[in-house]
Design a protein around this nucleic acid. Structure first.
Lengths: 344, 344
DNA sequence: CAGTGTGCTGTGAACGTTAACAAACCCGCC
DNA sequence: GGCGGGTTTGTTAACGTTCACAGCACACTG
């Protein structure tokens, strides 16, 4: 296994010596340069194998000015959505032969995002992905980006950077339509935090669908994604639910829906007999709540793949004239938390 | 802002020229070498500021043979536990001035782990953290590790590598004791997959506590962490629960507990009146289940910090004579899913 | 048979940093 | 005023790779 030379791990020159070629030929073999005679290539490969040689990426990066690393700025990666997106990104990047460097932030503002970008810039990443679900975050990233290509995931449309996102508006339409189609007179909405783009999109889709159907639009109840805020929303809606004024609720994510189910249960409101509920995300738990939750599923892996593909393309071919926006469609998953309204 | 020279980003020599010193002095300032006159340092720093200079880490790594990068091998990072651990690791590493490179695997076996280590070795990481909750994974990592320091998180004790882990056995004792102290005659157990070390530890703690109390030990019901498997376990236990033979259940994680709650609900078994339930993890949803779940909370951030600290120490000072094992204690969080048994 | 292209290989010089050594400087002291 | 000791600075040589260029052999063309 180990050959001659002591301790020090082998370098190209060692391989070259053993294979009886120049170091440059070794480099060519490694980089799949076409003009190498098969016999030579085989000898080189054998030498590489024999020595257990690995090329030194630092030296390579030094001369090529490419680190083969992509930076990711993420936010609250313990939430199901961001965690899944991150997972998808990592897989896609690895498949494409890129390394990935992640910064996850607890709070998002111009300062923390700036520090994150600094940190990634220090690594000389070849490109940047910003999981920027908040208005503020997207703005901070677009304000601070240097000259490395950036792709936003779930970012807003305004800021002139390419975006890959799930079509939140359409997802919300699916949810709202589903409830209207079941016969509900109107649909209430528990929204996510106002500064989140996804929350915003879902609210828009919900409102648009109600308007298109020409039905009354109930007041929006605000939450912050947490089960607790869903619980509190549930307490607030419970009276309307009992009186039959609220018979269908579209909740902006599953965690809040879970809290809301809890609140309704405590208030003695039955789901789906008295009230129908639709969530968003399809977290693994959704299927096993009481009752199993109808929800909207997002394909995070697909978002990851599309983001990496777009970013690599940007790195390869330079910036585009017009800003791109790639959209992934969500699907409705119908379960037991929705039903036709009680006969009034 | 930009100074003279075109496009090309500034290098040490540029800074040196502006500050009127040699590039070596610039290097010294950057590396906080003590022997630099304050006046000189200030001039250098001013020049760095003026040019917006950043040092090239590839060049640095090339000569120092340190990449300042730690590798992490993780598994199913969309689960709450691993995601939280990863988050903790990332924060701790960044605070310590290290970069982090992550590989998350879908399936764990010698092959996939080998590829992951290859991938990280290609980056010449200075150290390795293996989030190795499975017997198989821990074995694969320890078998394949090269000469870079490794720390296992949640790893087994056998394989001669340093480990940082939550004390699963103690956590299970807390859960089981809690139920016995409430007056339950014995405690049933829904276990995690047999090849997971955490599942194993929790089962051991449960059994030991029952034995110490001298009570009958019910058969173990097996799950796979998923809500679905908890649901199925619930269906299997439901009869024993109705008949009063099973009045207390310790479930090996919260997701399964959630599924189990669902099954018991369907079977008309009331929690906690008929059956008390304790979970493990304290996922954000736990507090808002029906009923709010009593569970055991793990401090993942602390695990992350301790792991990084241990790994950096290993990198700094070389391997230890005896293998270390650092343990973090979990705490019981009592909520509404546990109560004294119904008067029999 | 000379001329010319093309496939393959080698040579030397970057890339931008740190390490090792050497030189200059300053200070106090005899 | 010269001399030792420490501090501060500069010079030169790595580190391991890729790039640009040159050279050689060989086949093909006219």
């Amino acid at each position: 296994m180990t050959h001659g030379a002591a301790g020090r791990s082998p370098v190209m020159a060692d391989v070259a010596r053993i294979a009886g070629v120049s170091h440059q030929t070794v480099s060519r073999v490694l980089n799949h340069h076409p003009n190498v005679r098969p016999a030579t290539r085989d000898r080189v490969l054998a030498a590489i194998e024999e020595l257990g040689y690995r090329r030194n990426l630092s030296a390579r990066a030094l001369v090529t000015r490419r680190t083969n690393t992509l930076g990711v700025v993420a936010f609250d990666t313990t939430l199901y959505g961001p965690a899944s997106t991150l997972f998808g990104l990592e897989q896609a990047a690895r498949d494409a032969g890129y390394f990935i460097s992640i910064v996850s932030l607890k709070t998002i503002n111009r300062k923390t995002v700036g520090e994150a970008l600094d940190y990634l810039a220090a690594q000389a990443v070849d490109g940047l992905i910003a999981i920027a679900p908040q208005v503020e975050a997207a703005a901070a990233v677009s304000a601070l980006q240097g000259n490395v290509p950036v792709v936003a995931v779930e970012g807003g449309e305004a800021d002139g950077m390419p975006v890959v996102a799930v079509d939140q508006v359409h997802g919300a339409e699916l949810a709202t339509r589903h409830l209207l189609d079941l016969g509900h007179r109107t649909v209430w909405h528990v929204a996510g935090p106002v500064d989140w783009l996804e929350a915003e999109g879902r609210k828009r889709g919900w409102r648009a669908t109600l308007e298109a159907a020409g039905v009354e639009i109930p007041p929006v109840v605000e939450g912050d994604w947490s089960p607790r805020s869903g619980y509190e929303a549930g307490l607030r809606i419970a009276d309307d639910a009992r009186s039959g004024r609220a018979s269908a609720i579209f909740v902006s994510n599953d965690q809040m829906a879970l809290g809301l189910l809890r609140a309704l249960h405590e208030a003695g409101v039955r789901v789906p007999q008295d009230v129908s509920i639709v969530g968003f995300d399809d977290i693994p738990e959704a299927e096993f709540l009481t009752p199993p939750l109808t929800t909207v599923r997002q394909d995070f892996a697909e978002v990851g793949r599309k983001s990496i593909a777009l970013l690599l393309d940007l790195i390869e071919t330079g910036p585009r004239p017009e800003t791109e926006r790639i959209v992934v469609s969500p699907v409705l998953v119908a379960r037991a938390s929705t039903a036709p309204p009680a006969s009034t």
